[in-house]
């Protein structure tokens, strides 16, 4: 598989959120705005790339039976680093993401890539795979955040689009809007890729 293919597959064809339906909790929970979506996506991207690299480096030294707990420890380490760094240098984002930062550790995308790709491939390919999946995840979260913010309050990235006289359709920023917006985005992705759902 060429490097470019590894990088690009996470973006559309195997997009973790829209196609593989992984990592739904942060995708729904943190996308009240496009900015928060980007923040969460980048935090996950860092954990994905780093844990993929380390897992790929140590894969031969880890006995098969303790494989999963070892991967979890590696992932949890990088999650804690992200947690501390965000708390120190981006406190506003840290507050907005809240509980979902430590929960990156149980994001199925991260453990899934470590187990399915990094434990079988070399370091460079694993890093690229993590990067591709991370970009795909960030893209999905940013898109969902932007859609919710535009419909919900008529603004995106702090720019007022003047869609509404006063308040927007606030329900899209609240919990129900998250489910509904993601449902329609996945339907559109299905329609465009003309792939029947399972």
């Amino acid at each position: 598989m060429s490097k470019l293919k590894i990088l690009s597959k996470g973006f559309i064809k195997e997009n973790p959120v829209f196609v593989m339906l992984l990592g739904m909790c942060p995708a729904l929970g943190t996308t009240t705005s496009a900015e928060n979506g980007i923040g969460m996506g980048l935090a996950t991207l860092f954990v994905l790339v780093m844990s993929n690299i380390v897992v790929s480096l140590v894969k031969n030294f880890i006995p098969d039976k303790v494989r999963i707990p070892s991967y979890i420890v590696i992932i949890a380490t990088f999650v804690t680093i992200v947690d501390l760094v965000l708390h120190a240098y981006v406190p506003d984002l840290y507050k907005a993401l809240g509980l979902f930062i430590p929960l990156i550790v149980v994001n199925c995308v991260v453990l899934g890539r470590a187990e399915a790709f990094a434990s079988k491939n070399n370091v460079l390919d694993s890093a690229i795979d993590g990067l591709g999946m991370g970009i795909g995840f960030t893209f999905a979260l940013t898109l969902l955040g932007a859609v919710r913010e535009i419909i919900g309050s008529g603004r995106v990235f702090g720019v007022n689009l003047h869609l509404y006289q006063s308040d927007g359709m606030l329900v899209f920023i609240l919990a129900p809007g998250a489910f509904i917006a993601l449902g329609f985005i996945i339907a559109i992705v299905n329609k465009l890729s003309k792939k029947p759902a399972q």
């Binding site: 031969n60 880890i62 006995p63 303790v66 070892s70 420890v73 949890a76």
Partner: peptide
Amino acid sequence: SKMKSTLLTMSLTLLLITGIA
């Protein structure tokens, strides 16, 4: 080749990884 899963290697690996972490 992959490390064999014996009690010794398993506990050593986990100990080492959590220690470094």
